[in-house]
């Protein structure tokens, strides 16, 4: 079955969420490949992503040791001490500098409604940036699968879930989160990642809203 333009865009979108989520894991040897794939995936969707993606690749190449990125990753997202860019939704949505808030519980409820929960042994919070991006990847993938099966209603349903999730969670904190990275990051890698994540999520949010309006 030949892919429609919509389907191929959707496929790229789902891929992009997966790859972005991967970038919020501690930097390892596969990081360069992920970023390269991310750049290629976003090329067709978001032309302005080319700059930050290239900047991220350049930054990886410039690091004398992976350790530099690991130190930066720790300071931004792990700690210890003053966590520079807490990667948790609740910190931004509830204003109390706390994890596991009401909003975190809501996110977990949304996962459970989709038959999902955190993987056994996964020791981060449900509203960790990598998990929320993965959830978007999941919903976009489900939308695509529905489309391929010709189940329009289900596809629209998954699209609504994505808009809803962005509107009540990820889309609401991605901006301040990216700002915190941009304020504190010393490497172009994480500055690029912040811009890319924010621009992509905002672009996707607009796009989905527009599509839903058109559908209606």
């Amino acid at each position: 079955m030949p892919q429609t333009r919509v389907e191929s865009e959707l496929r790229a979108r789902a891929q992009a969420y997966r790859l972005l989520a991967d970038c919020y894991y501690p930097p390892g040897n596969g990081l360069r490949h992920s970023v390269a794939a991310l750049g290629a995936t976003l090329k067709s969707l978001l032309p302005q992503a080319a700059g930050p993606a290239a900047q991220m690749l350049q930054s990886i190449a410039e690091q004398t040791a992976l350790e530099n990125l690991q130190v930066e990753f720790a300071k931004l997202f792990v700690g210890p001490f003053h966590l520079l860019a807490p990667p948790y939704g609740s910190v931004y949505l509830e204003g109390e500098n706390q994890v596991m808030g009401e909003s975190t519980a809501e996110v977990r409820d949304l996962f459970q409604e989709q038959g999902l929960d955190l993987e056994e042994g996964f020791e981060e919070m449900p509203d960790h940036i990598a998990v929320e991006l993965e959830f978007m990847h999941f919903l976009a993938s489900k939308e695509l699968a529905a489309m391929e099966l010709g189940d329009e209603d289900a596809a629209v349903q998954y699209e609504r879930l994505q808009t809803g999730f962005l509107g009540s969670h990820l889309g609401r904190w991605i901006g301040p989160f990216a700002d915190k990275i941009l304020q504190s990051a010393e490497t172009d890698f994480y500055r690029g990642l912040a811009e890319l994540t924010r621009d992509f999520v905002v672009w996707n949010d607009d796009k989905l809203k527009k599509r839903l309006q058109d559908t209606q």
Binding site: R18, G30, S34, L116, E119, F138, K142
Partner: peptide, 21 residues
């Protein structure tokens, strides 16, 4: 991260899950 990519590229309609199950 590369592992995630491979899965995602080959079969995007099957979500590739790491944190969620």
């Amino acid at each position: 991260a590369a592992a995630g990519v491979a899965a995602a590229v080959s079969a995007p309609w099957q979500p590739s899950l790491k944190a969620l199950a």
